[in-house]
Simulated scan of single mutants.
Amino acid sequence: MYSAQAEAKPVLKPVLKLVGSGVVMLLAGCGMGMDDATDYAARTFSGNGEQIYYTGRSQAGTAITYQGGTMHAQMHSTSCASCHGDDRQGKRLYPKFWLVAPALTRHALTEEHDDGHGDHERYDKNSLKVAIRHGLDPAGKGLNTAMPRWQISEEDMDDLVSFLITDSH
């Protein structure tokens, strides 16, 4: 006698193994390819803007908070460097490997017209502040929602923007 249930058991077992392995890999790899802000804790920084970029904390010890971003950013302490990289060249985002955070070098922000993430004018200090706080490029178009919207004091913002625009990376 034919039983659909008997036939399903051999198929179900490999599927469950595959799903279980995927969950284990996801949990084990959480953070894989991402630099958490705590990775930079022992580093010495030349100024407040650089410290904010790498750690998400000001030199006064204030955490720079944010809303949105990737699932990883929402689950972990993150910073600009977590997505844009130690060298500020940008990198693939975890877990959305098809997205690449753009470079945040002085050249990419102020000298190139198209950063590969939309055709817009160069950033200046004011438009960069708008991008960081509100997620809008210089043309007023929304940045990808993977970019967190940062709540940051004006003094800390000035230091961060100055670091991004004047640093030679």
Results as ranks from 00 to 15, higher is better:
Met1Ile: 03
Tyr2Asp: 07
Ser3Asp: 09
Gln5Ser: 09
Lys13Ile: 14
Pro14His: 10
Leu16Gly: 03
Leu16Gln: 07
Lys17Leu: 13
Val19Gly: 05
Ser21Tyr: 09
Ser21Gly: 15
Gly22Thr: 00
Val23Gln: 00
Met25Tyr: 09
Leu27Trp: 15
Cys30Gln: 12
Cys30Ser: 13
Met32Arg: 11
Gly33Glu: 02
Met34Thr: 07
Met34Gly: 00
Met34Asp: 01
Met34Asn: 02
Asp35Thr: 12
Asp35Glu: 09
Asp35Arg: 04
Asp35Gly: 03
Asp36Lys: 14
Asp36Arg: 14
Asp36Thr: 13
Asp36Trp: 13
Ala37Met: 09
Ala37Pro: 05
Asp39Tyr: 06
Asp39Ala: 14
Ala42Glu: 08
Arg43Cys: 00
Arg43Trp: 07
Thr44Met: 04
Thr44Ala: 07
Ser46Pro: 04
Ser46Thr: 05
Asn48Trp: 00
Gly49Cys: 05
Glu50Cys: 11
Ile52Val: 15
Arg57Gln: 15
Ser58Ile: 03
Gln59Met: 11
Ala60Gly: 04
Gly61Trp: 00
Gly61Cys: 00
Ala63Leu: 08
Ile64Ser: 08
Ile64Lys: 00
Thr65Lys: 12
Gly68Tyr: 02
Gly69Tyr: 03
Thr70Asn: 10
Met71His: 08
Ala73Ser: 14
His76Glu: 12
His76Tyr: 06
Thr78Pro: 01
Thr78Ile: 06
Ser79Ala: 15
Cys80Phe: 03
Cys80Gly: 05
Cys80Tyr: 01
Ser82His: 01
Cys83Leu: 01
Gly85Ser: 11
Gly85Lys: 05
Asp86Trp: 00
Asp86His: 07
Asp86Thr: 01
Asp86Leu: 00
Asp86Glu: 04
Asp87Leu: 12
Arg88Met: 09
Gln89Phe: 05
Leu93Gln: 09
Leu93Met: 11
Tyr94Ala: 15
Pro95Ala: 03
Leu99Ala: 14
Ala101Asp: 08
Ala101Asn: 09
Pro102Val: 04
Pro102Asn: 00
Ala103Pro: 03
Ala103Thr: 04
Ala108Met: 12
Leu109Phe: 04
Glu112Arg: 02
Glu112Val: 09
His113Trp: 15
Asp114Pro: 06
Gly116Gln: 08
His117Ala: 13
His117Glu: 14
His117Pro: 07
Gly118Cys: 00
Asp119Ala: 03
Asp119Phe: 01
Asp119His: 01
Asp119Met: 06
Arg122Gln: 10
Tyr123Gly: 11
Asn126Phe: 03
Asn126Lys: 11
Ser127Ala: 09
Val130Met: 04
Ala131Trp: 02
Ile132Leu: 08
Ile132Val: 03
Arg133Asp: 02
Arg133Thr: 10
His134Pro: 02
Pro138His: 11
Gly140Val: 05
Lys141Cys: 14
Lys141Pro: 11
Lys141His: 15
Gly142Ser: 15
Leu143Val: 10
Leu143Lys: 04
Asn144Leu: 09
Asn144Thr: 13
Thr145Trp: 13
Ala146Tyr: 12
Gln151Val: 11
Glu155Ser: 10
Asp156Tyr: 03
Asp158Gly: 12
Asp159Leu: 02
Leu160Ile: 07
Val161Ala: 11
Ser162His: 06
Ser162Ile: 06
Ser162Ala: 08
Ser162Leu: 01
Phe163Met: 01
Phe163Pro: 05
Leu164Val: 06
Ile165Phe: 03
Ile165Cys: 03
Ile165Gln: 05
Thr166His: 15
Ser168Trp: 03
His169Cys: 07
His169Trp: 10
His169Leu: 12
